[in-house]
Design a protein around this nucleic acid. Structure first.
Lengths: 341, 341
DNA sequence: TATATTTGCTTAATCGATTAAGCAAATATA
DNA sequence: TATATTTGCTTAATCGATTAAGCAAATATA
């Protein structure tokens, strides 16, 4: 298994006694190369198992055809499905993606961006980490003139394309569903307000509560990291209230499953004593019992749209990126955890 | 937002009226560059926000410092955790990883390998797709002299390093656990035999059954794609037997959850009528009720070990890659789905 | 037949970073 | 003081692929 040197254009050129320029053009079907030469070149290329050196062509062309993707984690059906669909669309156009995870950490997100810039990606498609408040590292991408596109977790003031669902409306929809089920005291375990989407969910919750004249108390609205563990903890906090809620809307399925487990342990009946709604429609919401009502975010559409929007950007690069929101309608999937009627 | 041209060594060299060679060496702390020059170079580099062009240096050095990772999917706790741990170790040594998914498809796996080779990765760490039988595309990696390392799903006859658990022993352990719980007719929904790990699990199952003198019938051993849907279907097949099993060991948690849902729908009591064991210890096995007994594969260890083994390979490249197996002990996590005593 | 155009290639430069080779000045050693 | 060594840089080549510019031969057009 000698570390065989890779075949280069030069090798083919030498074999055929023509210039590397001719070989390159032949392989790219340049009109000014005779079909006789093209055939000969392709034959030898196949014979020598020639594969172009991406580094060299990317360097020369100033274009790597790589797209960086940053997600908080891949271990979630939502992100994994977004990525898969994005990849499908981008692959067809000759782009490959590099997937990186921020693990919800601000520092890791910064490092990840440096890595991607270093790898000379042609653009970055990202969903922000929970921890992220400061946007300097994203500004850095923009300042280098590299197209940036955000999905799901994005911030308006970055002024880049954004694709996501209408969080405000989704929250509204959830609260009205719970009211329709006869719930009168609805709590919300939300994400941190500094994240736009969670802030919107909180606003939607508050407005819907107000609209229907339900109690709108401080103690019913709790911010959380939305991890499974924290969902459990925050649910415990709600259970310790003098006046317990009769419904809890949790802004993430992961936190919701933690909460559900606690309720089960404490023998609190779901949905009769407390109705439960999650967010994200992760597969496990349908696996547990009672199955958890949740919101489908149409990850496959988000992925495909993100890719298409990116491709448009590549086709006609503008000098200035703008905030251009694409908002999809989410869908409430009603399951046993909130079905009282 | 003018598409600012990136700073290059040349820009720094021009500013200081020295050669690009001197700048390059200064940035790499070459001993033959005066500290005065080094300081000046670093100052200007910072001022101009210089970031080395990875494509150029990789091309020149013939080393990209990129490692390609191929997994069947990222949307599983096992693979996601392996990746995360692998990344951690590799990042520390200056390597970055490119994650790709085969989606369990042979064709996608081939494409993915081409992409990675094209991107000039320094090595590939992979877990094979379910569909994969033919190994030609993996041989291609080896023939290019690029280090290949397999984990979890690997094949002996590729003769490369492998890291995984002892599937045979794990199966054995599961069957003996079920026997200890009083089960007398144990079925196995396994993966396809052509995949080494699934074949080993089947062998472990058969040997353990034989060892304890239990019925070893054709109809109790079913091969499956191990998806959630197929788990459901194959469980249905087992339920239609004249003599139903009193325990089913399923080679994947995903198939196990499908099976569990069917059992629930049919009002069959788990574990009393049928005890259930999965494989992989995915988080949802602890979320559902009854919680599913499963096998923890120590994904974090596998990830770290894979990375370390790869790094060793990079340090002292040998001419010939060899089969060098690292086998970890798996751990049986006993939960309600199989607890009869 | 004389000129214009097209065809099919070659030459040489380029993308940035790195590095072997080498040179002059500074310093050390005999 | 004369030679050897070290220091601190420069020059030029290189990694492969691509492409602008250009040239000679072939072909088309007037």
């Amino acid at each position: 298994m000698a570390n065989k040197k890779r075949t280069t254009l030069k090798d083919i050129a030498l074999r055929l006694q023509i210039s590397t320029a001719a070989v390159s053009k032949a392989l790219h079907n340049d009109a000014r190369i005779s079909s006789k030469t093209k055939e000969a070149v392709k034959k030898i290329a196949k014979e020598l198992d020639y594969q172009p050196n991406h580094l060299a062509s990317a360097l020369r062309k100033g274009k790597s055809n790589l797209v960086g993707v940053i997600v908080p984690r891949t271990n979630s059906n939502f992100f994994s499905s977004v990525i898969q669909n994005m990849e499908e669309v981008l692959n067809k156009e000759g782009y490959n993606i590099i997937i990186t995870q921020s693990n919800e950490s601000y520092q890791k997100e910064c490092e990840t961006i440096d890595t991607l810039l270093f790898t000379q990606v042609d653009g970055i498609i990202a969903s922000m980490a929970n921890e992220t408040i400061d946007l300097e590292h994203y500004e850095k991408i923009k300042s280098k003139g590299i197209p940036l596109l955000l999905f799901d977790r994005g911030e308006n003031n970055l002024n880049v394309d954004y694709i996501g669902i209408d969080d405000y409306a989704s929250s509204h929809m959830i609260v009205e569903h719970l009211i329709a089920q006869g719930c009168k005291r609805i709590a919300h375990i939300g994400g941190y307000r500094h994240t736009r989407i969670f802030n919107n969910r909180i606003k939607g919750y508050l407005d819907a509560i107000a609209k229907h004249g339900l109690p709108l108390e401080q103690e019913l609205l709790i911010e959380s990291s939305l991890s499974k563990e924290d969902g459990r903890e925050k649910m415990n906090q709600l259970l310790s209230l003098k006046q317990k809620p009769d419904a809890v809307y949790i802004a993430s399925d992961y936190a919701a499953i933690g909460a559900l487990q606690l309720l089960e342990e404490k023998n609190i009946k779901v949905p009769d004593e407390i109705a439960l709604v999650g967010f994200g429609n992760e597969p496990f919401t349908a696996m547990v019992s009672p199955a958890i009502t949740s919101v489908e975010q149409h990850s496959s559409k988000i992925g495909k749209l993100a890719a298409k929007t990116f491709l448009e950007h590549m086709r006609k690069p503008v000098l200035k990126q703008q905030l251009n929101k694409i908002i999809l309608n989410a869908e409430l999937i009603i399951r046993d955890s909130s079905k009282r009627m």
